[in-house]
Design a protein around this nucleic acid. Structure first.
Lengths: 142, 142
DNA sequence: ATAATACATTATATTTATTCTAAACTGTTG
DNA sequence: CAACAGTTTAGAATAAATATAATGTATTAT
């Protein structure tokens, strides 16, 4: 893997030693052709399918959270029963299809810059996220 | 209570019979001077403090969810360990102070209209929510 | 009014995501 | 190669949300 060094660096910067399990997690997350959304459980399954390495839930949780802290992953602000994460850390937003439980990226260019005029003393904005909930467009909507 | 009829109507429209417990829930939610944010547990505590009626968690969950379906309450899209709800159902957004776990309303006028240019075939937008995460504004931020 | 029915309430059990724990393991350093 | 610091893991603990089933209450028709 030509990417291994890159992953080792990402791990080191996140304060984690590069172990077999963690490098496998990196491969799945950052080696993909496209960015994608995932839950922790889904990520564990992908790793199982794609490699012979078994990785425990706890390791995946720890690694994912370390990467979020560093900005290598993003958490998507949804009130779902489980947390959704995104390998696309660029500035963008989401549709959430509430009927199909499906997330769809909205490219930054498709949303006008969200400009918040109000400030809170002593605080600064870390992130601004837009979630647009969508539903079927039948006339008979309730 | 002059409001009782109003609450009975809200309940009926939500498909719920007006019972003692549910009317108490209405009083706490809709009788307040200001709109407010709450979790289910907090709501149960407020009811306990403010009345002699004891209301079970299940009843509160059911009633709150029926009201959300009808649009009398809103769920705030946050990945917190528990769900936050809002009695302010007008169009507005939120700051979420990640360090203090505190929600602050952003009035509609303080955010430019969020205009999403992209559409999904067969789907329509039900709601658009902006969450701005805020943190302390020390120079020494990490 | 009252009886019969349908719906509510409750305490408790269940489910499930997430976090914690402690024991076994790995890899690095002296 | 011994000692140490950090890892991994299975399983336990935690806690929110939902389901259950017995008891209670509102509604309806009589």
């Amino acid at each position: 893997m030509a990417y291994a060094d890159q992953y080792i660096e990402k791990l080191r910067k996140s304060g984690l030693r590069p172990t077999k399990q963690r490098i496998k997690i990196c491969e799945v997350l950052f080696d993909a052709e496209k960015t994608f959304h995932f839950t922790i459980k889904e990520l564990v399954k992908i790793i199982e399918n794609q490699a012979n390495i078994k990785v425990s839930l706890a390791t995946v949780y720890n690694t994912v959270h370390a990467f979020i802290k560093k900005g290598y992953l993003k958490e998507i602000p949804l009130n779902a029963s489980q947390s959704y994460y995104d390998t696309n850390v660029s500035h963008h937003h989401h549709f959430f299809d509430v009927e199909e439980n499906r997330l769809i990226d909205i490219h930054q260019d498709d949303v006008d810059e969200v400009n918040i005029k109000r400030t809170i003393p002593g605080k600064k904005i870390r992130s601004v996220e837009v979630i647009a909930k969508i539903v079927s467009d039948n006339q008979s909507q309730k």
